[in-house]
Design a protein around this nucleic acid. Structure first.
Lengths: 192, 192, 192, 192
DNA sequence: CATGAATGAGAGTTCATTCAT
DNA sequence: GATGAATGAACTCTCATTCAT
């Protein structure tokens, strides 16, 4: 059963998330979060004693939420092309949704941390993404839907061009055209 | 004749550049720059009154320096494949050189500015890169060295996967493997 | 019930008042007020974010305090000469009490503000003083105690010679002789 | 013969005077004077090393300029009423000319100096004014033009109401009506 | 748990003042 | 004499953080 404290923590994280998305990591102060949540100084500090703490909990939550969305569908034997469509659609949304993008905040956060390889979420996320795509590309190739290509290469292209656009649109206006071209290219390369 | 003040300004920018590359934009204070340059508070303020000013002058300088490196070679009629090799080699260096990457600083800077499309350097840089590549790809296609492909798509892929990796390596360890795969993919797509 | 914060504000104003009287407006810094009150930088800023704010609250307070001291006595039908004596006695004290005179500070403050006629306390104070004296002089004239003179003229003479001496004694040594002569002249002109 | 340096000094004082009249004493910095005169830092310092020095020279100059304007006319035997008219006309101008009034600056300057009686210009000026008026009033009384009144009283009234109005109008808008009433009162009291 | 008063460190900024050229 | 680069002190202001209530 969720206690009162947990409820408040969840509420703080929700409000803080929108601040981080809007202003990046470094520009958000504990004071900002007080104002956004309506909590007093001391009230906020009872739950979290730094923006780092709040941010890392938010990131942890997002990481956990991001489970392998392919695997279940692959088990069901859904067509690779269809799964690809779905995932690329989601990518497109995320590439143009600058409102909710934590990209900048994440990079700021990790650039401060001097993170060693052990506990670096960013690295883990990269590796996990690679694995996910690896499995999925094999699946598509085995089914004869995808070209028999160099997976490592294309996976890096997918991941980093996606990241590049997210950064870009988090700072400028969202760029639908660009997102569409990225998506289109990926499809051309993968699909027979 | 260059005056003393200009010399000092150049020196300040040089020192500040390394700080921005190391710590991003927001984490660099005027005090840091004082320490790095050995100038006193007032001495620094005589030349620049904010980190923004220094940063934007640095960026302006870089933009100007980054003139069209292809055009001259194309005029000389050098082989497209050879030019491509050169530019991709440089890209590779930059993708793995996290020390001197201003990527994070640039994104932080522009995220603070709420820059309108008019005076946004980032947008201009993107457009200028697109034009450069456009010309170059046409050149390679006309010479029969490059595939006759959808230029807009492949250009966005090049630009944003490059940007994505630069961001990534500014936060993690330099990732040579990844850079090589990106380069390799670009070549495969372009070259006949 | 007065909260802790209000108490502190009152205390700050009290201490600041003595500083303003001693050093004028511009020479008093937030740091000075910290030292005088024993508050820390941040502690002071929690309540006031500038000397202007503190000063204007002090002035507001004084203005409110300075309500019509004549009116009550006039209602009671006390002799005009007696009331005049009282008020001129107070004037004399104020003219020679350079320690507690805010004159210089007030002029400094308003000279910085470029105050428009709308929200200019100085103008309001002048007008209020004029009204007060107007009523009082009429009262004395009706009772047959004062000469039937041109009120506007004599009121300006009273107000500005008083102000002139206050300024003068805030800069030099208190000048009792002068104050007495001013007082004496006013009486001669008013009393039959 | 005036040297180059003296010429520059005169120029500096002229420009500084307008600054002091506009902003009072404390708000004028050496930097302001550099900007106003177009001189460089070092250039200004060659002549004056502080605003105090400049200001005190300006004041000295004004004091010297202000010689006894009555005495000559009294020698010539001009009617006291006529002389009075002239001097009061000048007073009226000065009371409403906030542009060129150094009143505030003077009070600020002397309030910082803790001036002892010896070298206090303000005190000397007061005494000199008193003497001047004393002589003049005697002259008018002897000629049978002025009432035989208590000179000390009326002189203080003249001097301080004049000073009071100057202060007032240096901060607010010039107040012609007030000046006229002050003048009118003085005349009524003096003239038979 | 929550409030908001208070602390103190540190950033930004401005100037009087000095000094090499 | 004049210039403008450089210094260092002082001030304003903002926060993370603590703590009595």
């Amino acid at each position: 059963m969720g206690k009162k404290g947990d409820e408040t923590k969840r509420y703080i994280k929700e409000k803080a998330l929108s601040l981080f998305a809007e202003k990046g990591f470094k520009n958000v102060t504990m004071k900002d979060i007080c104002a956004e949540t309506g909590l007093s100084r001391g009230g906020l500090y009872r739950h979290y004693n730094s923006t780092c703490k709040i941010f890392s909990e938010i990131i942890d939550g997002l990481m956990k939420a991001q489970n392998d969305e392919f695997s279940e569908k692959m088990k069901k034997g859904i067509a690779a092309a269809e799964i690809l469509d779905e995932i690329l659609n989601r990518y497109k949304c995320e590439m143009t949704d600058s409102e909710n993008s934590l990209s900048l905040a994440i990079y700021e956060y990790y650039s401060e941390k001097q993170a060693d390889a052990e506990n670096n979420m960013l690295l883990k996320q990269y590796e996990s993404s690679v694995n996910m795509w690896q499995d999925f590309l094999s699946y598509g190739i085995q089914r004869g839907e995808f070209r028999n290509i160099d997976c490592e290469e294309i996976i890096d292209i997918i991941i980093f061009s996606y990241q590049g656009v997210r950064m870009y649109s988090s700072v400028l206006l969202p760029s639908e055209k660009i997102a569409e071209r990225i998506i289109s290219h990926i499809k051309k390369i993968l699909l027979l």
